[in-house]
Each structure stands twice: as C-alpha cells, then as structure tokens.
Simulated assay, not measured.
Amino acid sequence: IAMISELAYHRVVVEEMRGSKTGGATPAERALRLEIAALQTEYEGFFRSTLAEGIASGHFRDQDISIAVRSFLMMLHAPIYWYQPRDAENITAIAEQLANMALGAVATPQ
C-alpha cells in the first residue's frame, strides 16, 4: 500500500538510485545515496531471510534465493512503473493482488 500511496516519492528514489553511478553528485547527494543503498540492503535482507526460512520449512519452493528475492521485490515494486492514481480506486485491493501474485511465485504448489 505504501508503494502506491507514496508513488511520487518511490519513483524519485528509484530514478535517483538508477543514476547513482553517475558523476556530478554533491557530497550530500552521495551521502543520501549511500544511506538509501544501506536501507535497500537491509530491506532485501529481510526478504532473503524470510524466503530462506520458508524454503527450509517447505512453504516455499527450493530455488535460488538471490533470483527469487529480486524477482519478488520487482513484482511488489512494479506499480512505480505503471500505476496511475484514479478516483475511488481501491489501492488495498491492488496491493493485495500484487502480494498474492508474488507469494504465488515462491509458494510450494499445493
């Protein structure tokens, strides 16, 4: 829900991080990029450990964790690329559908 409700912020962060390898950034911009990168690593680590636990317990399919985490997060973050707010749209339903699709990609088939 946060990704969709704070769409503009997340778009700016993604675009800024894409350009993080370019020169010309101020010291303050470089410091913020490093801070965002550290937070991103921590965020991905949460998903990595959760996926590893799910694989170990048999709830998630045994698969390459790095590929699964990056793909999982791409699906959850996809709205920054395509979502356009509309009046009276239920963003909770959109977020739930994305979460269900992402979980379906890693869950052990029943």
Results as ranks from 00 to 15, higher is better:
92 T>K: 06
22 T>N: 09
19 G>Y: 10
86 R>E: 00
5 S>V: 00
100 N>T: 07
22 T>G: 10
24 G>M: 14
29 E>W: 12
27 P>F: 11
4 I>M: 13
103 L>A: 00
95 A>M: 09
55 I>S: 07
18 R>H: 02
84 Q>V: 08
16 E>N: 05
16 E>W: 04
3 M>P: 03
43 Y>G: 11
17 M>E: 00
47 F>S: 08
57 S>A: 13
14 V>N: 07
103 L>P: 01
2 A>P: 05
49 S>R: 15
57 S>F: 04
25 A>I: 01
3 M>W: 04
39 L>Q: 10
76 L>T: 13
67 I>Q: 03
39 L>N: 12
2 A>E: 01
13 V>S: 07
86 R>K: 12
31 A>L: 15
72 F>G: 03
84 Q>S: 09
4 I>C: 13
49 S>Y: 14
85 P>A: 04
94 I>N: 12
2 A>H: 07
92 T>G: 14
25 A>V: 01
70 R>G: 01
81 Y>P: 00
63 Q>N: 02
45 G>A: 09
9 Y>H: 03
76 L>P: 13
70 R>Y: 05
1 I>R: 14
62 D>L: 14
62 D>S: 14
22 T>Y: 12
25 A>K: 08
32 L>P: 01
94 I>A: 10
81 Y>Q: 02
52 A>V: 06
33 R>K: 12
85 P>H: 04
90 N>P: 04
81 Y>C: 03
25 A>P: 02
76 L>K: 15
70 R>A: 05
44 E>W: 14
94 I>V: 08
5 S>M: 11
26 T>Y: 13
95 A>Y: 09
52 A>T: 13
74 M>G: 07
61 R>M: 04
103 L>E: 02
38 A>I: 09
85 P>K: 06
107 A>D: 00
79 P>N: 06
105 A>N: 06
12 V>N: 03
18 R>L: 00
88 A>V: 03
46 F>E: 03
102 A>N: 07
92 T>L: 09
37 A>N: 11
102 A>I: 04
102 A>F: 06
107 A>C: 04
14 V>T: 01
107 A>M: 09
106 V>G: 03
21 K>F: 13
63 Q>D: 02
5 S>Q: 13
98 L>R: 15
84 Q>I: 01
59 H>I: 02
36 I>S: 13
